[in-house]
């Protein structure tokens, strides 16, 4: 039946307007985030910054030596995310000079610098965060979703299960019923997590521009966007959602005039990578746990997944299908 093609001649008319063609990216094997500071830490003394970079150094070396590369010479790039979303002063040149000098002195080369604000909204106004928000799928209740449930979370929260419940059943009995929280994908016992993705306090530093523009994204949400950006999984019309700009030799005074991602090391390996490692102070552990929860509910564009799989396959680079498996972390000890 299927072979019964009436006319075997090749077709003469071809109209294929594929809406989006996914671009193959230049990819490193590993993207390493070399530390993180809150903005007030960057504003203040140099010593804590120097100490953190010194602690990052041996683990960065270890990461370079152990990058999974499928037999190719490992390509590793480093990046640093500047926390300019929740608070910032017009002092980008001073901060950047200090940051790059102290990291260099500690033997940590930063290849790329990105702005956290760009994970919410790009310099050109494009809402980067929406690319993630609209692809988050709430986890279905056990035997409670048969196809009609709206796919997108509108509540601004993302959980991995069912919250605990406490309710008074009958007023007269004055008895309480309590049901424990339940992780849907638990193994024997639950670790229930519910993460706030955004609130409606208004975009920091922004004028009111509608419901989306009014969202103030949470730190874990922006960190999840940042991980997906590094892994090449966030695209706009097939192109990376945040693009890399070469450093033009000068930092703008205002953070929100600086490019989204700046290449500060001209000889760096590609920014985007098959896998990521984040070397962070221990205090970021709950944030990264939340990042994993968000990413576990993120459904990537199948065409993007296919493009990365094809590139990895061609070079025998092992690439896990579960996105969270592409992430790794090292948490630096706290205290001094």
């Amino acid at each position: 039946m299927f072979s019964a093609v009436p006319d075997a001649a090749p077709s003469v008319f071809h109209e294929r307007n594929q809406g989006t063609t996914v671009q193959n990216l230049g990819l490193s094997h590993l993207s390493v985030a070399v530390g993180h500071f809150y903005m007030d830490e960057l504003e203040n003394g140099e010593e804590p910054i120097r100490t953190q970079f010194e602690r990052v150094k041996p683990w960065l070396d270890a990461a370079k030596a152990s990058a999974i590369s499928g037999g190719e010479r490992p390509r590793v790039s480093t990046c640093f995310l500047v926390d300019d979303y929740f608070q910032h002063w017009p002092d980008a040149p001073q901060i950047m000079e200090k940051l790059l000098r102290l990291s260099r002195e500690a033997g940590v080369t930063i290849d790329y610098v990105a702005r956290e604000s760009a994970c919410a909204r790009r310099l050109d106004g494009f809402q980067t965060a929406e690319l993630v928000a609209t692809r988050l799928l709430e986890e279905p209740f056990p035997e409670g979703a048969n196809g009609g449930r709206p796919p997108i979370s509108m509540s601004g929260w993302m959980s991995n299960g069912k919250p605990p419940r406490e309710s008074r059943v009958l007023e007269t009995m004055e008895s309480h019923v309590w049901e424990p929280a339940h992780e849907f994908g638990e193994r024997n016992h639950s670790i229930y997590l519910d993460v706030e993705l955004w609130d409606s306090q208004g975009r920091p530093g922004g004028e009111d521009d509608g419901e989306l523009g009014n969202r103030r994204y949470s730190c874990p949400f922006l960190a999840a966007v940042w991980q997906l950006i590094r892994l090449g999984l966030l695209r706009q019309d097939g192109q990376p959602a945040l693009k890399v700009t070469d450093f033009d030799g000068e930092w703008r005074t205002e953070w929100d005039q600086c490019p989204d991602i700046v290449k500060v090391n001209p000889s760096a390996q590609p920014f985007y990578a098959y896998r990521s490692l984040s070397i962070l102070p221990r205090t970021f552990l709950p944030i990264e746990h939340s990042v994993q929860n968000i990413i576990n509910h993120f459904l990537p564009d199948p065409a993007v997944v296919e493009s990365l799989d094809r590139q990895a396959g061609a070079k025998n680079v092992p690439l896990p299908p579960v996105i969270a498996d592409r992430l790794s972390h090292f948490f630096l000890a706290g205290g001094n």
Partner: peptide, 30 residues
């Protein structure tokens, strides 16, 4: 364009047709 960042596929001839990107729904049912 039901999802930001992805454009729909389309044909002009012989009859106009536009196809949205796939969106996904969580299922746990019988």
């Amino acid at each position: 364009a039901l999802l930001p960042g992805v454009s729909p596929d389309w044909h002009r001839h012989p009859i106009e047709q536009v196809v949205s990107p796939d969106i996904f729904f969580g299922l746990d049912c019988r």
